[in-house]
Simulated scan of single mutants.
Amino acid sequence: MTLKRFIPLIILTLYAVTAAAQSQLTFSCQEWDFGTIREADGPVSHTFTGENTGDRPLVILDVVTSCGCTVPDFSKRPILPGQKADIGVRFDPANRPGSFSKELTVYSTERKKIGVLRIRGTVLPRERSVEERYPLDAGGGIRLNTGLCAFAYVQQGRRVESTVGIVNTTQKSLSLELIPEEQSGLLTTEAPQQLAPGQEAEIVFSYYIPPTEPRYGTLRDVLGIRIDGSTSRIPLVVHGIGVDPMRTPAGGGTGPRAQLDRNTLKFDVVRRGGGPVRRTVTLSNEGDAPLRVRCVESEKGFTWQLRPGTTLPPGESLATEVHFDPARADYGVQVGHLMLITDDPVRPMRKLRVTAIIEE
Rank of each mutant, 00 (worst) to 15 (best):
M1G: 15
F6I: 11
I7R: 08
I7M: 10
I10H: 07
L12D: 00
L12V: 14
T13C: 12
A21D: 13
Q24G: 04
T26N: 10
C29G: 12
Q30E: 13
W32P: 00
D33H: 10
D33V: 05
G35A: 02
T36C: 10
E39W: 08
A40P: 07
H46I: 03
T53G: 06
V59A: 03
V59T: 14
I60N: 01
D62L: 08
D62C: 01
T65V: 06
S66P: 02
T70L: 15
V71C: 07
P72N: 12
F74A: 06
P78Q: 11
Q83W: 13
D86K: 15
G88W: 09
R90F: 05
D92Y: 06
D92H: 07
S99C: 02
K102I: 12
E103N: 08
L104G: 05
R111H: 14
K113Y: 02
I114E: 01
G115L: 04
L117G: 03
I119E: 01
G121N: 05
T122W: 10
T122I: 10
V123T: 03
P125I: 02
S129Y: 01
E131I: 11
P135H: 00
G139Y: 00
R143A: 05
L144Q: 04
C149E: 08
V154R: 05
Q155N: 05
Q156G: 15
R158Y: 14
R158K: 15
T163L: 06
V164G: 02
G165C: 08
N168E: 03
Q171P: 00
K172C: 04
L174P: 01
E182D: 13
S184I: 04
S184K: 06
P192I: 05
P192S: 06
Q194E: 15
L195E: 07
A196Q: 15
G198D: 08
Q199L: 04
E202G: 02
E202M: 13
V204M: 11
Y207A: 08
Y208C: 10
T212Q: 13
R220K: 12
R220C: 05
D221Y: 02
L223R: 09
R226A: 13
I227M: 05
G229A: 04
S230G: 03
S230A: 14
T231E: 15
T231H: 08
S232P: 03
I234R: 04
V237F: 09
V238Y: 00
V238A: 02
V238W: 02
V243C: 06
R247I: 14
A250Q: 15
G252K: 08
G253R: 05
N263Q: 14
T264W: 01
L265M: 01
L265Y: 02
V269Q: 15
V270I: 11
G275E: 00
G275P: 00
P276L: 00
V277R: 11
R279Q: 09
T280W: 06
S284R: 14
N285R: 12
A289E: 15
A289F: 11
V296Q: 01
E299M: 10
K300W: 09
G301C: 09
G301A: 12
Q305T: 15
L306T: 06
L306E: 03
P308E: 07
T311Y: 05
P313Q: 05
P313G: 04
G315V: 03
H323A: 15
D325S: 14
R328S: 12
Y331A: 07
V335L: 07
L338F: 02
L338G: 03
L340Y: 05
L340A: 01
I341L: 09
D343C: 00
D343S: 02
V346T: 14
V346C: 05
P348M: 04
I357N: 12
I358H: 01
